[in-house]
Computed example of a mutant assay.
Amino acid sequence: MLLSAWLVLGVLCIATDGLTDDVQPADSLLVLGNTVNSNGSLSDRLQARLDKAIQLYHAGTSSTIVVSGGLGKEGHYEGTAMQQYLLRRGIPAAAIVVDNAGNTTQATAQNFTVIAKKRGFSSVIVVSQFFHLSRTKLLLRQQHFAQVYGAHANYYEARDAYALLREFFAYHTYLMKG
């Protein structure tokens, strides 16, 4: 019973954290990758993440968008596909930094930390699905990146329930590794 209560409380905390955007001026937006379809189009989840970043960029929240993802099984680099989407939506090339080696959330956190040090970034807003934000922020903090905030994409689907459960275990795995 105690384990069940811990699970329910943990899932509620992850959902609450992810659905409560903490948006303030930051040096960078960090958009995590997701599926690029075999025809090169973006999954709805990925497009929603980028649309949120575009909204924040136009609001003046940050002048830099870092896009991070890996080579998907569909044969496309997520970072490059994300960059192309942003360019088509009027974001200047100089405002976009591409990380095509972010194959996992942990790799994205490590790669972003290197990018941040080179560019002098001290603050970041992570943009992803709501259930993904707590773990991503944790991983960035474990990389000694102190000013980490989050903003969730406005896209929801039934599989989010499974994703929340998966994130509970993933979050605690990285918390213990910390």
Rank of each mutant, 00 (worst) to 15 (best):
residue 1 M to C: 10
residue 1 M to W: 02
residue 7 L to M: 08
residue 13 C to K: 13
residue 16 T to N: 11
residue 21 D to K: 07
residue 27 D to C: 03
residue 28 S to N: 08
residue 32 L to G: 10
residue 32 L to A: 08
residue 37 N to L: 14
residue 40 G to C: 02
residue 46 L to G: 02
residue 51 D to V: 09
residue 52 K to T: 14
residue 55 Q to T: 14
residue 56 L to N: 06
residue 59 A to I: 03
residue 60 G to D: 07
residue 62 S to G: 11
residue 65 I to V: 15
residue 67 V to T: 10
residue 69 G to V: 04
residue 74 E to C: 04
residue 79 G to P: 12
residue 82 M to H: 00
residue 83 Q to R: 14
residue 83 Q to L: 07
residue 84 Q to C: 01
residue 85 Y to F: 15
residue 89 R to C: 09
residue 93 A to V: 06
residue 96 I to Q: 11
residue 99 D to A: 05
residue 100 N to C: 07
residue 105 T to S: 14
residue 106 Q to V: 02
residue 107 A to C: 06
residue 107 A to W: 00
residue 107 A to K: 07
residue 110 Q to A: 12
residue 112 F to V: 06
residue 113 T to D: 10
residue 113 T to L: 04
residue 115 I to A: 11
residue 117 K to E: 15
residue 119 R to D: 10
residue 124 V to W: 07
residue 124 V to N: 07
residue 137 K to H: 04
residue 138 L to G: 04
residue 139 L to N: 02
residue 139 L to T: 01
residue 140 L to D: 02
residue 141 R to Y: 00
residue 141 R to G: 04
residue 148 V to D: 03
residue 154 N to L: 04
residue 157 E to F: 03
residue 157 E to G: 06
residue 161 A to S: 10
residue 161 A to T: 12
residue 163 A to Q: 05
residue 164 L to H: 03
residue 166 R to G: 03
residue 170 A to V: 04
residue 170 A to L: 08
residue 171 Y to P: 08
residue 174 Y to A: 12
residue 175 L to V: 06
residue 178 G to V: 03
